[in-house]
């Protein structure tokens, strides 16, 4: 029975088969496509078209880009964001990789407890994590009052969130919520290294340090690159943290502290949608380049069978 059917299928004609295969699977993807187009592709295209035109729809080339780039808030906003992103990236690469290697060098019950503890703050993304850290930075109630007062010299909340501290504070918040997840990812990547390799190195007389730095580190390079590029792109989009600190500081911290905030203010407060679009295209471009780099260079994401 089955055999005849199979033969029938083969005899069905190459043309019809090709015709059929040009559509196979498409119906399953159809319900998803409108979402991909409406909220993945069109917004980007629409922002692009706004960025190159006036509010009346006249094409003006790069004018919106140059106007916004010359805005007195543009430079500082991008400076803030890049400083924050660099601090965060360094912290991530040094501490996350270091902690993952340390945890992996001697697996035990204790290390899995540590991994879990590091992971917990991941539940507090968004506004909640910022609120927690506003408490931590308020010398009046902070459990780290001693550190705040004697190491950083901040006896008042406004001193703790002085503008010079902000890139570091935001980097710390981002590290606090995100590092645990990355440690789990890198730990998992370390687990895929064949134990024989490590065994062989040990027999050859390599110590724990040598094994960690010369054997394990190179083998998780791709994952570190992925973490770095992704975090760079995410970092440049900073919005929630400075927005809440602006609200908590009575405007002492400007509401255009980050680039995304500037774009937001241009659209909301000033109604300059075309200029807002130009800034968001700048940011979109950074995100897009990072994404394309990850997809094409790290080889971590499969897109073929």
């Amino acid at each position: 029975m089955q055999v005849t059917r199979k033969r029938g299928l083969h005899a069905g004609g190459a043309a019809r088969k090709r015709d059929q295969s040009a559509w196979r699977g498409l119906p399953f993807v159809l319900p998803y496509l409108p979402f991909l187009i409406l909220f993945g592709i069109l917004p980007a295209i629409y922002a692009l078209s706004l960025a190159f035109t006036t509010s009346k729809g006249k094409f003006i080339g790069l004018k919106n880009f140059t106007t916004t780039a010359n805005d007195y808030r543009f430079g500082p906003a991008f400076e803030h964001v890049f400083l924050y992103t660099s601090v965060w990236l360094i912290a991530l690469i040094v501490f996350v990789v270091g902690l993952a290697l340390m945890l992996h060098s001697r697996a035990s019950k204790a290390t899995s407890t540590f991994r879990f503890l590091y992971y917990i703050p991941g539940a507090l993304a968004g506004a909640a994590s910022v609120l927690v850290w506003l408490f931590m930075l308020d010398p009046a109630v902070s459990p780290a009052r001693f550190l705040l007062e004697h190491v950083f010299g901040s006896t008042l909340f406004v001193q703790a969130i002085a503008p010079g501290h902000l890139p570091f504070i935001f980097a710390m918040i981002a590290f606090w919520t995100g590092a645990g997840g990355w440690i789990v990812v890198l730990y998992g990547a370390l687990n895929t290294i064949p134990p024989d390799l490590e065994e062989a190195a040990r027999i050859d007389g390599a110590g724990a340090w040598t094994i960690a730095l010369r054997l394990k580190l190179p083998m998780i390079r791709k994952w570190i690159a992925y973490m770095g590029i992704l975090s760079f792109a995410t970092g440049t989009q900073l919005f929630v943290e400075p927005q809440l600190v602006n609200q908590a500081s009575l405007g002492f911290v400007p509401d255009t502290w980050s680039a995304n905030q500037l774009a937001y203010q241009l659209a909301f407060r000033y109604g300059k949608f075309n200029e807002a679009a130009a800034v968001s295209v700048d940011l979109l471009l950074i995100g897009l380049i990072a994404a394309v780099l990850i997809v094409t260079r790290t080889g971590l994401f499969r897109k073929e069978d």
Binding site: A47, Q237, F239
Partner: peptide, 28 residues
């Protein structure tokens, strides 16, 4: 499991939008 035309394009665009930070698309 599909073999439809444009499958790779949909997959690649999905992948890129997925990796791009979500907040980059909020203002657009």
């Amino acid at each position: 499991f599909g073999t439809f035309r444009g499958r790779k394009l949909v997959l690649t665009v999905t992948l890129i939008v997925m990796i791009m930070p979500a907040s980059a698309l909020v203002l657009p």
